[in-house]
């Protein structure tokens, strides 16, 4: 675990075969091998983003390739008139609750799987893995009926539950392999000191799990933020729309008002891209930690 944390600071020799830049020949191959393809990747990744930003900030009718002159009209329209203020609030609610529930439930479940031996454990693991083959889109119809009979259609809870259910299996598996890597001796020592198991867990395990919690939490936040088909099916009224649903209607109805479409897209993109920027390193480490078991 500590090893993984060290890596996160970037000080470890991560590159297996670092090119030492001593000779100009080496320099050239370095550029050819790394700089050139990297620039190509960067351009291909960023041009679509730039295009959206350009249209979002450029006044209607301008053909400049720079967002100059600059306008916020599209954002004002999207936020106040189209209703992105409401969509945004709904998305935040859904993503936060989905994240919190998924994390709490996966920590509990992951701990049980990692620390206990019980009848049915292997079967449970197989079942969790099998859920990965279940297409969410294809359960739309029965899920709709279930939520309908629970009175949760056109209610954000239906969306939250669906998000949690479809994120859970993977997060539980990841969480259990994280917990497994924490030496049991640490907990034992705490219990010898007179702590209850729960206290031992809170005092010893939880702090160690911080990178895992960041990885899993942000993973589910982004997943819930982006969740579209369930939201489209379960939510009927504009007051409850989340950003992806609102965006899909913007695409459908304002598809000629490019600035509005781009501004809506930017509102949808900024939170996840910012979060991603912060956690990207953790994500790589988090997956790596889980994968290595």
């Amino acid at each position: 675990m500590t090893m993984t944390l060290d890596k996160a600071t970037g000080s470890a020799p991560a590159a297996p075969a670092p090119a030492r830049r001593r000779h100009t020949g080496r320099d050239r191959t370095h550029h050819l091998r790394i700089t050139l393809p990297l620039v190509v990747f960067l351009v291909l990744t960023l041009v679509p983003f730039y295009w959206m930003i350009l249209y979002a900030f450029r006044p209607r009718g301008s053909n400049s390739l720079l967002p100059v002159p600059f306008t916020l009209d599209n954002f004002v329209y999207v936020w106040n008139t189209v209703g992105y203020d409401v969509y945004f609030r709904n998305s935040v609610i859904v993503a936060l609750i989905s994240m919190a529930l998924t994390t709490v439930v996966s920590v509990a479940g992951g701990y049980a799987i990692a620390r206990y031996r019980f009848a049915g454990r292997p079967a449970l693991m197989v079942a969790l893995l099998c859920t990965q083959f279940i297409p969410g889109a294809m359960l739309l119809i029965p899920l709709y009926s279930i939520f309908n009979s629970l009175g949760l259609v056109n209610n954000l809870w239906s969306l939250i539950i669906a998000n949690v259910v479809f994120e859970l299996p993977l997060t539980v598996i990841l969480m259990s392999s994280f917990i497994q890597k924490i030496p049991f001796e640490l907990e034992e020592a705490a219990m010898v000191d007179g702590c209850s198991r729960l206290r031992g867990f809170l005092a010893v395990i939880l702090p160690q799990l911080r990178p895992a919690l960041v990885a899993i939490g942000s993973f589910t936040f982004i997943g819930a933020w982006n969740s579209f088909l369930f939201a489209l099916m379960f939510l009927s009224t504009q007051e409850l729309f989340t950003i992806p649903v609102g965006l899909s209607y913007t695409v459908g109805e304002d598809s000629i008002n490019y600035g509005v479409m781009a501004a809506g897209g930017l509102v949808a993109a900024v939170p996840v891209v910012v979060i991603f920027g912060f956690i990207q390193k953790f994500l790589v480490q988090g997956i790596s930690g889980a994968v290595k078991g």
Binding site: N226, S227, G265, A268, V272
Partner: peptide
């Protein structure tokens, strides 16, 4: 981190 719908609008 970008959703399918957002990819569409871009």
């Amino acid at each position: 981190a970008i959703s399918g719908v957002l990819t569409t609008s871009i």
